[in-house]
Amino acid sequence: MGRFDKTLHTTLLRPVRMLPIGLIVLALVLYAGACAYLRQAQERFIFFPEREVSETPATYGLGYEEVYLPLGDDRLHGWWIPADRPDAPVVLYLHGNGINVGANAEHAHRLQYRLGFTVFLFDYRGYGKSSGPFPSEDRVYADAERAWQYLVRERRIDPRRIVLYGHSLGGAVAVEMALRHPEVAGAVVESSFTSIQEMTATQAWTRFFPVRWLLHQRFDSIAKVSRLQVPVLFIHGQRDQVISYTMSERNYAATPQPKRLLLIAGGDHATNAVEGGNLYLEGFRAFAHSVLSR
């Protein structure tokens, strides 16, 4: 082969040799971009708010008061649903990551009508009629704190007459609030998880990303429950396909006494009260009676 042929051969092979390197660089750029996106936009994978409120307490025949709470330049919207007894204990209802208060009106009715609580149910910023930016972990904690101050300072309710109730992600908010306010009577944590990090570990695609480094929305209940100084009732359906009931078992095991665990054999993520029937209602009622009479 002559010198010209060798030069031509080398020239033709160069793009072929460079191709794998180019693909590797492109893959690294895409991977870095995906990591940056996951870190910057992870709230969009956690919160799923809707603005339209489809149901109200009136849908279930309940009287209620519309409440708007200023919070900086924003405001929270909620419903004050009074019990028949003026001295009834109050449930601060912390809903999950989807839809808004409208999807929780039926259960608020159950807590008020069947169990005799006054219920304050509100939307985090970004949900329903609550104004403000898209929700985040810090924001929903601040929103729950604002709701707590409304009850204690504006409604002048003794904290020892308040029971925190949180469903799903709201359960993690209830854990945070119970940690901040050990003066509360107790907390009910239903269908909730140990942490967002452990929730992501159940998703196959997360194995390809450094989730521990990327995650800043943590809702790390399992790291908090050991420090709680209030009674806690954990409720979970054993057919829950969204969050495994074993997460409630682990939270329960890590929580100091007094504590209770109520597992509903036929319950899924949102049907514990329906599937559990009297078992659910009596479990909730017995827990509330014990903590309110302390």
Rank of each mutant, 00 (worst) to 15 (best):
A58D: 08
V173W: 02
P82Q: 07
V91G: 01
L215S: 04
P182R: 11
T255N: 04
A36M: 06
G61R: 04
L28K: 11
N272E: 12
A265Q: 10
H236V: 02
G102S: 11
V230D: 04
V25W: 05
S293V: 07
L12R: 15
R17L: 15
A273I: 13
F134H: 15
Y141L: 08
Q257P: 07
G186V: 00
F120G: 02
L76Y: 02
Q217M: 08
L62T: 00
F120E: 02
V16F: 15
H109L: 03
V163H: 00
T271D: 13
G116M: 13
S293I: 01
G78Q: 03
S130K: 03
I81R: 08
G276D: 07
A270D: 11
R212T: 08
I46S: 02
R139L: 14
W80H: 06
S191P: 03
H109N: 07
R160C: 08
G2S: 15
L23N: 11
T194E: 04
M199A: 13
I222C: 01
M247I: 00
A273L: 11
A270T: 15
A270S: 15
T118K: 09
L62H: 06
G126C: 10
E66W: 05
L12T: 05
Q229Y: 01
R114Y: 11
R227P: 00
G98K: 11
H9E: 14
L62Y: 03
E145P: 02
A32S: 15
E66I: 03
N278Q: 14
W79N: 06
H269F: 07
N97L: 04
E190C: 07
F47N: 03
G2C: 08
L28R: 12
P20I: 09
V225K: 05
R51Y: 06
M247G: 01
L115Y: 09
V25D: 01
D87A: 15
G72H: 05
H9G: 10
R260K: 15
H107P: 02
A83V: 06
M199P: 01
D220E: 13
R207Y: 09
S226M: 10
V173M: 08
R39S: 13
V29H: 05
T200H: 07
A172E: 05
L71K: 08
T59A: 11
Y280T: 02
V53T: 13
S54N: 10
P82K: 01
E52H: 10
E145W: 05
V230Y: 00
G128Q: 04
A172K: 02
E52R: 13
E137G: 07
M1E: 12
R139K: 09
M1H: 11
R39C: 02
P70W: 03
